[in-house]
Design a binder for these strands. Structure first.
Lengths: 190, 190
DNA sequence: TCCAATTCCTAGCGGTGCTAGATATGAGAG
DNA sequence: CTCTCATATCTAGCACCGCTAGGAATTGGA
């Protein structure tokens, strides 16, 4: 019986190794550099092994994204918790969100731009995604007024997402980043 | 002499045919379906001909994007021109921007998400891009107050871009789209 | 009419994600 | 302890991608 347990454990470890290798490679060289051949070489197994864990490359990217949701949620929670007042909370949360996106661009892309077939309506994504979203909601609650809170949250989120993506693709001048963020925060501050 | 003129004209026509074929194919089936082989078949020439017009596939996508900038700018200009008052102008411009992105998703992607090496600092892109950006600027000018106008414009633009991209990738509920847009418009209305 | 230059195509390179079929491994039965 | 059989893994290959070298065909001018 224990041998089966061991094999299951080893299998789980290998699955995590695949995710970690994909994550590290994507962060270091971008998703284009993450090929199934390089991934297989990294974990020291042959290519087809990947397909016994994941349906395809997209599923591996989705797994990396899932880890990202947990990370981002934690960062946002922490930012709001340490803010002095509600107004500062909006600024701190926005800064934390943007910092995450800038420091882990590849993961951010996997979460929000690539891999459309993420399990957005099942399993463990909602847990961490909802955690982060709820935290955003609480942050902007003071400014929601008579608007629907969820709608205001989504709009604020979209503003952050737009700033992040446009700047990283070179459409916005990097120098004015902080000022743009300040404008957005001001529009969503109590 | 006239034969050379004819050949240059035919060459220009073929170049436009490539761009149009890429545009149509991308709109119909997405950029993944736009391969150099299909493009070549579409214009009834062999693959290498494409490379005598463009440096590579990215350059073809950039050319499609350039056409898109002109289209978007025209739509935005028209929206602002027909608005009854400054407040309505913000709403109309936002609606026109979002409508363009939703009706021509592939072109919007080529303009703002893919193809990083766009000639953002030369030739004819700045003309149409600046045209659209200037129009956005005039629209939000009443609300700029003591903030820098360009910064406010970029932030408003980022909000629109965020709404568009997050919704099309399935991260936002489609039903509440108009309400989110209203929230954003309200935050940037005089 | 012949030559030279340009235009265009055929064929192929190295890469991708993914998979079928063969092979090695190891657990359980006799 | 040996044999059998299922499971795990690998080798080899498919169809496709963007891109390019080199040869064939066409064309304009002498």
């Amino acid at each position: 019986m224990s041998t089966q347990a061991r094999r299951e454990r080893e299998r789980a470890e290998r699955e995590q190794a695949i995710i970690s290798a994909a994550r590290d490679l994507a962060l270091a060289e971008g998703w284009d550099a993450v090929t199934t051949r390089r991934l297989a070489a990294e974990i020291e197994y042959s290519q087809p092994v990947l397909y016994s864990h994941f349906k395809g490359k997209d599923a591996i990217m989705a797994a990396v994204a899932v880890e990202g949701f947990a990370e981002l949620a934690t960062a946002v929670v922490s930012a709001r918790a340490s803010a002095a007042d509600p107004r500062q909370a909006v600024a701190d949360v926005a800064a934390a969100y943007v910092a995450f996106a800038q420091q882990r661009p590849a993961i951010y892309d996997a979460m929000f731009t690539l891999a459309v077939d993420l399990p957005f309506a099942s399993q463990d994504v909602p847990t961490d995604l909802a955690r982060g979203f709820a935290e955003l909601s609480e942050t902007v609650r003071p400014v929601a007024a008579d608007d629907d809170l969820e709608t205001v949250t989504e709009t604020f989120w979209a503003g952050l997402h737009g700033l992040v993506t446009l700047m990283r693709s070179g459409r916005l001048r990097r120098a004015d980043h902080d000022r743009r963020l300040a404008v957005l925060v001001d529009r969503f501050s109590p």
